[in-house]
């Protein structure tokens, strides 16, 4: 499996990870090797096999429709890189 530098750039863009040209050039063969390794799965006959959805059979539970959390704004914001007036703050997104 060969992965092009353009593909690496596109995937890194989707993953929101900035990469340099040098990194893209280094990652292309690395990712190609890993994808080559995992592509052997294609040889398994999975016709009629349902993909696994739960590793151990378990019933999803319903819980009472009541408020169980909240009122902890300061704790929620305590680790924010930047918080003002009780909000997370980010760079301006609307001109």
């Amino acid at each position: 499996m060969s992965v092009t530098i353009d593909t690496v750039r596109r995937i890194a863009g989707l993953a929101r990870i900035a990469i340099t040209e040098e990194e893209a050039a280094r990652l292309a063969p690395e990712l190609g090797n890993i994808l080559g390794f995992i592509e052997q799965l294609g040889e398994v006959d999975t016709a009629g096999v349902a993909p696994m959805t739960a590793v151990i059979p378990n019933h999803l539970r319903l819980r009472d429709d009541v408020v169980t959390d909240g009122g902890i704004r300061d704790a929620v914001l305590a680790n924010a890189p930047q918080a003002e007036h009780g909000f997370f703050t980010v760079p301006k997104v609307i001109e």
């Binding site: 593909t7 995937i11 989707l14 990712l31 994808l35 995992i38 799965l41 294609g42 398994v44 999975t46 096999v49 349902a50 993909p51 696994m52 959805t53």
Partner: peptide, 20 residues
């Protein structure tokens, strides 16, 4: 990559079938 459009079934769905 394996979850991106066009590849999901070939990789992820196939892997979950093999997992089964």
């Amino acid at each position: 990559y394996v979850l991106s459009a066009g590849f999901y079934d070939a990789y992820y769905t196939q892997a979950q079938k093999v997992r089964a």
